[in-house]
Design a protein around this nucleic acid. Sequence first.
DNA 1: CTGTTGATTCATCGGATGTTGAATGAATCA
DNA 2: TGATTCATTCAACATCCGATGAATCAACAG
Lengths: 240, 240
Amino acid sequence: MEKQAPGRRRQAAEASKERILNAAEKLFSEQGLDGVSVREIAAAAKLDVAMINYHFGSKRGLYRAVFHRRIDQLTEQRLGELDRALGHAGEPPQLRDVVHALIAPNILLRSNRALGGVPFARLIVREMTDPNERERGIISEMFDPTAYRFMEAIAQIFPGAPRAEIHWAYHFAIGTLVHAMASTGRLEYLSRGACAMSDPEVILARLVPFVESGFEGCLGHFRRSAATASDRNSALTPNP
Amino acid sequence: MEKQAPGRRRQAAEASKERILNAAEKLFSEQGLDGVSVREIAAAAKLDVAMINYHFGSKRGLYRAVFHRRIDQLTEQRLGELDRALGHAGEPPQLRDVVHALIAPNILLRSNRALGGVPFARLIVREMTDPNERERGIISEMFDPTAYRFMEAIAQIFPGAPRAEIHWAYHFAIGTLVHAMASTGRLEYLSRGACAMSDPEVILARLVPFVESGFEGCLGHFRRSAATASDRNSALTPNP
DNA sequence: CTGTTGATTCATCGGATGTTGAATGAATCA
DNA sequence: TGATTCATTCAACATCCGATGAATCAACAG
């Protein structure tokens, strides 16, 4: 027998891990990996310090675990919406739908505590803007698969565009998205409260047109023009 | 006599401060405020640990000084280009010129070591995406004056646009810019080297059209339409 | 030359850091 | 029930942290 009733033991242990993960997610998002001590996290979770190393091996292990708890769900949401935007095969999708699929799950995440809420969104921003992110590989694990799929969708919409130009435009679009996820409060501060990031639909109604137009501005003149010989047949995904 | 020849004393001291500032700028940009110890900075500057507290009071004081050394020069550049974009009074400026003035100095900064180069650019990104930035106030000091002036220029181009919509679009534009300043290496990584951030002109030739189109997408339909009564006469800068 | 100023060095302070091994105790299993 | 597993607690480890007061030394003024 391998899959029995959870057992009060494992169940309690699992609850402890969740308490630690919740405290770590909140504190890491506010202060950064190096700005928080394991003692602070343990105190916030109302558990002993040693529990963190027992359950997660190390502080770094806990940091990784905070992301791992959310990765699958977020990736699933983004790819699901992309598939819906792609619709039936053969026909190029609408740019607006692809941009919405690219952006919406990440913005809606902010107001959905089950998906991590603002703390997890801030944490993603922290990791995405950290020049030492590579050595951890969390961003790659989280976003590489969706990135190439989204760029393929963009390539369908602008068939003549060289792959490098698609990468540039995609990079800019992600930048716009990341900053919108950051919730630094600077928009509210500068606008003296005239703007608020509390309603995700209010954000999306403005962010999606901005990014959509950005793509058009970068790639629009490739829409119906023929690709040059060197650009044709260049795959967006890397070759083995 | 108060302003004599510098004196070898002050001159040597000033050189020490510069050594510390350079080391701190590099290390803070790579590892963050909490990721670097004053001992590491002192070692990189080949000076005693106590020198940091002697010259800058505290670690926080050094952090602030790293920004202060660059603030004036950067603000001057940005406002100078904006003034040139605004041209002669009365006539609305070209959107492309305003966007270029908004973006170019920050991108050119990356390849100009005298302005801080990539390290200072990364440091700005770190500070801009930190939710605890407010308590330090560095970003406000650095960007508030220019922000309002740029938004006024945008308002001239889209006379019917409500101030809140201008704030939204400006916020998105800054996000695109900030991510481009980050130099995370992810663009190069995803594109397998097909794109590179080394040449600022290559970046600007793509980034400016992206942001320009973003503004158009958000505010374009306000360009020649009349403002509503509630929007008219609403100043962009805060009232006293 | 003499006394003073101020930059630099040295040693050290109290405390916080991540991590660990041993002890504890309760749920689980034979 | 008795043995065992394992989550949890406790105490401690070695190290690093930011900061400082006293000592040192050279440049400067008179």
